[in-house]
Computed example of a mutant assay.
Amino acid sequence: MPTTLSSREFDQDTSGAKRAALSGPVFITDRGRPAHVLLSIEEYQRLAGGNASIIDLLAMPGAEDIAFEPPRSQIQTRQVDPS
């Protein structure tokens, strides 16, 4: 279950909010309305896909259905000046 703190509560117990974020998101409110969410770095990376390797991404279900046609590379040669 997510934790909800007012901005004032967050300011008064930042360490407690960080501990709570290890168990799930911590919603921080301004004037009773959600304004921010505190997450552990692991949860953020999971949501953002920050730890996924290309192998993990290619192994995802449905990955074979994703259209991917990169542009052909245009390699040009040029003279080298050995001086």
Rank of each mutant, 00 (worst) to 15 (best):
S15H: 09
A17L: 08
V80G: 06
R31K: 14
Y44F: 14
R78Q: 09
L57H: 00
V37T: 15
Q76N: 08
S7F: 06
A20S: 06
E64V: 09
Q79A: 06
K18G: 00
D65Y: 08
H36C: 14
R19Y: 04
L39T: 10
G62D: 09
L22F: 00
T77L: 10
L38M: 14
Q45N: 05
L5M: 15
A52N: 02
T14N: 01
A21K: 07
E42V: 10
P34S: 13
D56L: 08
T14K: 10
A67W: 02
D11T: 05
F10K: 01
Q12F: 03
F27Q: 10
G50T: 03
E43W: 00
S53G: 09
N51H: 07
L39I: 09
N51Y: 03
R46T: 07
P61N: 05
V80C: 02
S7R: 12
S53L: 03
E43A: 08
D56C: 08
S53A: 03
A35R: 15
D30A: 12
R31P: 00
I54N: 03
L47Q: 00
A48V: 03
G62H: 08
E42L: 04
L39K: 08
F68E: 01
P82T: 04
T4C: 05
G24E: 08
P71L: 12
H36K: 11
G50I: 04
R19Q: 13
K18V: 00
Q74N: 12
A17H: 09
I41Q: 11
D11R: 03
Y44C: 05
S6D: 02
S23M: 06
E64Q: 12
G24K: 04
R33Q: 15
S6N: 06
I54Y: 07
E69C: 07
A63C: 08
S40Q: 01
G49M: 09
S15V: 13
T29W: 13
S40K: 01
L58A: 14
S6A: 04
Q76C: 01
Q45E: 06
V80L: 10
T77K: 11
Y44A: 11
V37E: 01
H36L: 15
A35K: 15
E43I: 00
D30Y: 12
I66F: 11
F10L: 10
E9A: 12
L22T: 07
L47C: 00
A67L: 03
R46Q: 07
S15N: 09
Q79W: 01
R78G: 10
I66G: 04
I75W: 01
H36I: 15
F68P: 02
R19H: 09
P2I: 01
R19M: 10
G62N: 11
K18R: 11
R19T: 13
A52S: 02
D30R: 15
P2L: 07
A21I: 02
Q79R: 13
P2N: 13
Y44H: 11
H36M: 15
R78V: 00
P82V: 02
S23R: 14
T14M: 08
G62W: 03
G24C: 09
I55V: 14
A63L: 06
R31Q: 14
Q45A: 02
